[in-house]
Structure formats: structure tokens, C-alpha cells
Design a protein around this nucleic acid. Structure first.
Lengths: 190, 190
DNA sequence: GACAATACCTGGTGATGAGTAGGTGACGTT
DNA sequence: AACGTCACCTACTCATCACCAGGTATTGTC
């Protein structure tokens, strides 16, 4: 019966915290609840993450791997296009937990004194820039004379807004299809 | 020095609760904090609203007046168009508090056992339907052969998604302009 | 096998949460 | 003037929170 090694344990805690965060939001998440989920006491958890804020930061850093930014990190932003973006939405539609965490936390972060506020502020700036770069390849054919930089915030809004509606009513809202419809609106075929 | 009458007091409490909800989310809001803001003790507040959930329900019911649904309640849905919708966004851009409450609470509501879940589920269904009705008048000229019903969830997503980005970075994100750009994407001029 | 670091634990603390129980004083009605 | 209702309070209860202090058992290193 070997004890998990330090970094494995950390991973487990982060994974559990990610889930609990999705279920209860930041203020609704207790360290004890996260600890219980990995079979530790709250104090055992605090051996790894001395404060709640610290744990949140670790979650945000680590779990970035799942999202748009890291989806594209390895690649050249301008090398990926709408097809890949639509596929990311397909993928997200199979992972409600991940979507929920980011939806809940990002809205949570506009709250007063929220520790993740700066994180999301910066993150959205980066995502808008990334999407703008991606749209460059369609720049000449964009409708209404709009530029990639003008469309980027709208596209990001569609991504986020559809997630919220989908989380609230997965049977009624077909997120992947709706996103493809949006791309069609841009005159982009997938 | 006359004491506020019952219903006035209720209004004051709801107004204060609305603000605190925006600042801290549902789970982060304490009855004591709301009470303090209206100059009552927590128990004084509970004379009017026996439980926290009860207070939330009252806030949601009452403050609906500010939103899209009530914006249009008096009018025939098909009588209002994109211009009015864009003006609503203009108006929202001057009222960050209201926007924040709905943004925070709607995302909050996808959380486990959240008392406002059903409210937002139903609300979004109604908003989508309303927007679809509004789009009917443009039905023949919509791009990519899309129908009002197909565009409605996208338009609602844009509304919500832009609000989040705007709340996080009001200097960088020009919500009203971005929304007009979206309408341009639909081939609608304002 | 000595020794230190790691990985936890038990046992607190003080703050704060929602909600309860039972009052008191002001007011309107008759 | 008596009476009831409304508005609000003090004084709890009990659970839960983040976090601290200090311990012990296991593990890796030499």
C-alpha cells in the first residue's frame, strides 16, 4: 500500500478542486469538501496548498491545458482555423465539468475582491487576440466589412454565451451546431 | 422621523440585496451584509424575508423590470426590432450593477442545488423565443439561409458573452459597438 | 542505521453563516 | 382606552469556515 507521491497527490487535489469549484463556485467551495474527495483531511490538503487562494491559483494554472489557449499553444495561431475551433466546441460538449468550471469561475471573478479577477481579465485579452489572429486568414471575406479584431470579441462572446445556455439546458441547446451556424454567419464553411 | 412603511422597506431590502448579490454572488452574500446596508439587523431583515432563498426569489421577481423581458413586456414582441435591442445594450452599458447581478447570478445558477437554476433555465428559454420573434421581421434577409430560431441562441449568447467581457475590462471592450457589429453581421442596419 | 524531509494527523481558534425564540414598542382600529 | 398587528430587536443555537500549532509515522539518503 504505497502512499501517492507528492506530485501525484497534488494532481489529485487539483483535479478534485476543479470539480468542486464547478459544483459550488469559489466562495461555495470549502477546503474540507475538496480534501474529502481525495481522502484527506482538510489539514492534510493544506500541507500542499497553504491557503484557499493558493489552491485556486494552482487549479487555474494547471487546468489551463483543456482550454482554447492551450488547445492552440503548440501550434501557430494562424495555422489553425475555424474547423479546429468548431472541433474544440465539439470536444467541450462532451466535457460539461470543464465547461462548468470556467463558466462559473469566470463570472464569479467579476465579483468584488475576487482572487481570479486578474487571471480572467488577462485571459480574455489573450483569447480575443488569439481568435483575431485565427480570423486573419478569412480577413478578405468577412461580412459587413468587419475586421478580425472587430469580430474577435463577438466570437468569444458566442463561445461563452452558448456554454451558459447549454449548461442550463443541454437538451434544448445544441452548442456545437449553434457555433457552426455562427461560423456560417461569418461566411466560413466548415 | 417616520419609519419606512412595510412595502417601502421591502423595496429597500430588495434593492440592497440586488447590489450585494452583484458584489459577492449568491453564496457569498450574507443576510447580515444586506441588512446592514439598509440599516437593519439581520433579524430585522428576516422579518420581511424569512429565508435567504426567499430573498433571492423576491430579488429575481422584482428586479426583472430592468431586463430584456420587461423591456419588451408592454410592447408587441414583433413590433420591436434591432434598433430597440441595440438601445437596450446602450442602456445596460450605463448600469454595470444590473449587468453584474445577472451575469454573476446566471452563471452561479448552473452550480449544484442552486435555488435560481429553474428561474434562469426558464428565463433563457423565454428570451430565446422573444429574440426569435423579433428576428422574424428580418427573416427573409438573414445570411447563410439561417432562420430566426437558429440565430436566437447565438444572439442571446452574444449579449451575455459581451457583458462578461465588458465587466472584466470596460475600457477595452466596447459592448454597444460590438453588439452593433454583430447586428451588421446579420445584415441588419441600425 | 542515523537523520532529515515529507506526508500526513489530532486538536484547537475565532469568525461568520443561516435560522430560531421570544420579546418590546409604536401604530391603527374600534 | 383597549387590542391587535406590524416592525424590529436582543439573545441565542449550531454548523461551518479558513487557518494555526504541534505532533507522528513513513520515506529517501547516506
Amino acid at each position: 500500500m504505497s502512499r501517492p507521491r507528492g506530485s501525484d497527490r497534488r494532481d489529485g487535489i487539483i483535479r478534485a478542486a476543479f470539480d468542486v469549484l464547478a459544483e459550488r463556485g469559489y466562495r461555495g467551495t470549502s477546503l474540507a469538501a475538496v480534501a474529502e474527495r481525495v481522502g484527506l483531511t482538510q489539514q492534510g490538503l493544506m500541507h500542499y496548498f497553504p491557503t484557499k487562494e493558493n489552491l485556486l491559483a494552482a487549479v487555474l494554472e494547471t487546468r489551463d491545458q483543456w482550454d482554447l489557449l492551450n488547445f492552440t499553444r503548440s501550434k501557430d495561431p494562424s495555422a489553425i482555423g475555424a474547423t479546429e475551433l468548431a472541433e474544440l466546441v465539439d470536444y467541450n460538449a462532451t466535457r460539461p465539468g470543464i465547461v462548468r468550471t470556467y463558466t462559473v469561475l469566470s463570472a464569479d471573478s467579476v465579483t468584488e475582491d475576487h482572487p481570479a479577477r486578474e487571471y480572467f481579465h488577462d485571459r480574455y485579452a489573450r483569447v480575443r487576440q488569439l481568435v483575431a489572429q485565427m480570423l486573419e486568414r478569412y480577413a478578405d471575406d468577412l461580412p459587413a466589412g468587419l475586421t478580425p479584431a472587430q469580430i474577435a470579441p463577438i466570437a468569444v462572446a458566442v463561445l461563452d454565451g452558448l456554454q451558459l445556455q447549454w449548461l442550463l439546458d443541454p437538451d434544448e441547446v445544441d452548442m456545437p451546431q449553434d457555433f457552426r451556424n455562427f461560423l456560417a454567419l461569418l461566411g466560413i464553411k466548415t
